[in-house]
Design a protein around this nucleic acid. Sequence first.
DNA 1: TATAATTGCGCAATGA
DNA 2: CTCATTGCGCAATTAT
Lengths: 147, 147
Amino acid sequence: MSKVAQQNSTPAISVIHTQAHASGLQQVPQLVPAGPGGGGKAVPPSKQSKKSSPMDRNSDEYRQRRERNNMAVKKSRLKSKQKAQDTLQRVNQLKEENERLEAKIKLLTKELSVLKDLFLEHAHNLADNVQPGGTDSPATTPDNTGQ
Amino acid sequence: MSKVAQQNSTPAISVIHTQAHASGLQQVPQLVPAGPGGGGKAVPPSKQSKKSSPMDRNSDEYRQRRERNNMAVKKSRLKSKQKAQDTLQRVNQLKEENERLEAKIKLLTKELSVLKDLFLEHAHNLADNVQPGGTDSPATTPDNTGQ
DNA sequence: TATAATTGCGCAATGA
DNA sequence: CTCATTGCGCAATTAT
């Protein structure tokens, strides 16, 4: 449980990896040695291009992509949490409905029981007052003892 | 899903985050300077104590704590995922049971219906065999045994 | 006080 | 290529 009272890193982000770190350990990855365009030829639709380079962390491109990804991540995680919460809610909903259904079953069962009893009573009355050659079917006792 | 074979973590401390993490850079509130409170005098059990040093990332203590925390984080997340999965499973379970219950209700309802019909039939038979005028229920043959 | 558990966040690899 | 997911580590906070 946590109400979370974080008010720390708000704008910080930008300051974070602006470039070097206080620690001075900002080991900047070696830059691209010869670069792909060594000869000035850009290989348009093929491999062997921007990959294999450490890519400058200072690059504007880089920062931009990072920021975008960060947004995406945030979004995704939010969505994820939402979904989880929904699922949880669904559980409660189902539990409720479950109880409702069970109550209904109980009711129906009782009703059935009553009717059956009435039936039996009637059958007995008939048997007692009516002579053989009766009319209807007295032994219609559909029993249900399943599930 | 990703099988990703990251180069870090698992194996005990490697060359990875010896200092400047090639990857997980993070800002370091490297402040050590002037003590916080202008005075330096404060309540006994209060500020001004530990967090004064940047804490060497090289420190053995540091690395050890990091590793422990990483384990804890991993564990916690695993647990979290497990819980989520369980919840999802629960939903399915509940859904199944719900269907089962609904089926039962349907059955009971039908049974009830049948019994009621039988009752009605019976009532009609009685009505046919008895002189007209005897509507259904309320007609409890008023009569006059007296005269 | 120390330690473990959570949580927000950014990074990078990978999936779509 | 861009966006979405996901595993992972860091650090701050909270719970034990």
